[in-house]
């Protein structure tokens, strides 16, 4: 991605965050927000050239909305699961640490995948090295790498592959 494009991308993201936090449209606040996000994106845009944000598009936007709904459903399932294991008198857990593989490239995509895995039923991400993710699973169902990838990561990856293609 070119430098000017990444500069404007970072500038608009920072200004949207400022608008969200202040939640007003007074002229002074808008001017201060514009100045601050201009200065910050002038300093930091070189860092964000390497990361690579996804380009915009209608299909990606629709899939992002579907992805948010899927993640919310999984969050609610995760919480019911963990809460059941917490209040059960025998504590029925079967923990272990497994490795899964991912096909995504790009740091933003891997970050989103890791955070989604952290929020879903009984799994949380310990580390990401290259294209492998180290995952602690509260109820291990299979010890091999391929089956674990199919069980944990596949339901998010098929959306993320379209969003961050």
């Amino acid at each position: 991605m070119s430098k000017v494009k990444s500069f404007f991308y970072l500038f608009s993201v920072l200004f949207l965050v400022w608008l969200g936090f202040t939640a007003t449209f007074q002229l002074q606040e808008l001017a201060l927000g514009l100045t601050l996000s201009f200065l910050l994106s002038l300093i930091f845009y070189k860092t964000y050239v390497n990361i690579g944000f996804p380009p915009l598009g209608i299909k990606r936007f629709v899939f992002a909305l579907i992805y948010i709904i899927v993640v919310f459903k999984e969050i609610i399932k995760a919480n019911l699961d963990v809460a059941y294991r917490a209040v059960h008198p025998k504590i029925p857990i079967n923990p272990g640490i497994v490795i899964i593989r991912t096909n995504l490239n790009g740091d933003v995509a891997k970050t989103v995948l890791a955070n989604s895995i952290t929020l879903t039923p009984g799994t949380f991400t310990l580390d990401v090295i290259g294209d492998r993710l180290l995952i602690h699973w509260i109820n291990v169902e299979s010890k091999s790498e391929e089956e674990a990838t199919k069980l944990i990561g596949e339901r998010f990856e098929r959306y993320l592959r379209i969003i961050f293609a």
């Binding site: 969050i75 504590i91 949380f124």
Partner: peptide
């Protein structure tokens, strides 16, 4: 869950998932 689970990793599961929702 934070009080009852046996090791650090399971406690992280209970202590962050349930309190996030």
């Amino acid at each position: 869950g934070l009080f009852r689970f046996p090791d650090v990793y399971n406690r992280v599961q209970a202590g962050t998932k349930c309190t996030t929702l």
